[in-house]
Amino acid sequence: MSTERVEETKKGQNREMTPGRRKRIDRLKKMIVRAVVLMILLPTTGCIILGIKLHRARQYAESMEWQIYFLEGALQDSVDATDRAEALLRINEELRQSAGASGRTAPPADAEEAAGEEAASGTEDTRKVYLTFDDGPSIYTEEILDILAQYNVKATFFVTGKGKEGYGDVYRRIVDEGHTLGMHSYSHEYGNIYASLENFQKDLETLRNFLYNETGVVSHFYRFPGGSSNNVSRTDIREITAYLKAMDIEYFDWNVSAGDATSVYLNSGQIVNRVMNQVPSHRVAMVLLHDAADKHSTVEALPKLIEEIQELEDTEIVPITKETMLIQHVANE
């Protein structure tokens, strides 16, 4: 074909390419591009969603494995086959209630009054005072233990997880000297712990396993950071308490506060006075104290506080046990 004929053919094709035809071709091109993009994006998006669901499923499976582990431990502690059957029934009931729990239990209008009424229901004549220390261990824990040993007093330590700080000997000393080892969350990060029931479970299981590895003791006692009536939790607190119950863990709040948790400094005399102004009105006095690097005034107050409590008539200082009356701001129904 000659050059002249080729040029004429091109000119004829250009004449035939009307504006309407060009628009149709452009639309077709765009449709093809969009189809290709969708063919790439849809499988990719599906893989991402499946990956997220798989990750959550694995986390849930790990959480359930830990629950089974501790529930099996509770069954192994049963004395005979009858106890095991009763334990199974109790566990099944608690898990059922946990699955169906909804809504938040509002804290009592006066938590102090509610706790006082609960304490007043005790039948024993002897007043029981529980010295409880939150947030430890700290640089002062051993000083606290020395003072308790000097007065032959047993207390309860609601500890956090401080594996990297080298407090292994302190955790073991708490147990070896006859004090009660309680749990106060591993991280003590409110935003993370209370973000979901899954987060709470993971934090608790991490701490419980950590303490068992350090001391050989499986703790059965818990204190909520901020108390069970805290306003931080985004998870229904009854779901959490039902979970604790299923794990054979009792939680304790307090009805006597030393006031040493605030940013306002209190000297040792003020701490003693605050506690002693409250203790006489309770037959079961759960005293909230703190074991932290910025709370040395609490340590300084401890000898005088113990002496004044021991001077009260028909009063003894004891550690939390399975038989201890529950002091709870939000009742575990």
Results as ranks from 00 to 15, higher is better:
Met1Phe: 04
Glu7Asn: 10
Glu8Pro: 00
Glu8Gly: 01
Arg22Met: 14
Arg24Tyr: 06
Ile25Asn: 06
Lys30Gln: 13
Met31Tyr: 04
Met31Asn: 07
Ala35Ile: 12
Pro43Asp: 09
Thr44Arg: 12
Ile52Arg: 15
Arg58Asp: 12
Ala61Trp: 08
Trp66Asp: 10
Tyr69Pro: 02
Tyr69Lys: 15
Gly73Gln: 14
Asp77Tyr: 05
Asp77Ile: 00
Arg84Tyr: 07
Leu89Pro: 00
Ile91Thr: 13
Glu93Lys: 13
Glu94Trp: 08
Gln97Trp: 05
Arg104Glu: 15
Pro108Val: 00
Ala109Arg: 14
Ala111Gly: 02
Ala114Thr: 10
Ser121Asn: 12
Gly122Cys: 11
Thr132Leu: 14
Asp135Ala: 08
Gly136Cys: 05
Ile139Met: 09
Ala149Tyr: 01
Ala149Glu: 11
Val153His: 01
Val153Tyr: 02
Ala155Leu: 08
Val159Gln: 02
Lys162Leu: 02
Gly166Asn: 08
Arg173Leu: 11
Ile174Glu: 05
Ile174Gly: 04
Val175His: 07
Thr180Ile: 06
Met183Trp: 03
Ser185His: 10
Tyr194Ala: 00
Tyr194Leu: 00
Asn199Cys: 11
Leu204Arg: 01
Phe210Lys: 09
Glu214Ser: 05
Val217Arg: 07
His220Lys: 13
Phe221Asn: 07
Ser228Trp: 04
Arg234Val: 08
Asp253His: 05
Asn255Ser: 06
Asp260Leu: 03
Ala261Asn: 03
Ser263Tyr: 13
Leu266Ile: 09
Gly269Ile: 04
Gly269Met: 10
Asn273His: 11
Asn273Tyr: 06
Pro280Met: 12
Pro280Ser: 12
His282Tyr: 15
Val284Cys: 07
Met286Glu: 04
Leu288Val: 10
Asp291Gly: 06
Ile309Pro: 01
Glu311Arg: 12
Thr321Tyr: 09
Lys322Leu: 13
Lys322Ile: 12
Ile327Pro: 00
His329Met: 12
Val330Trp: 00
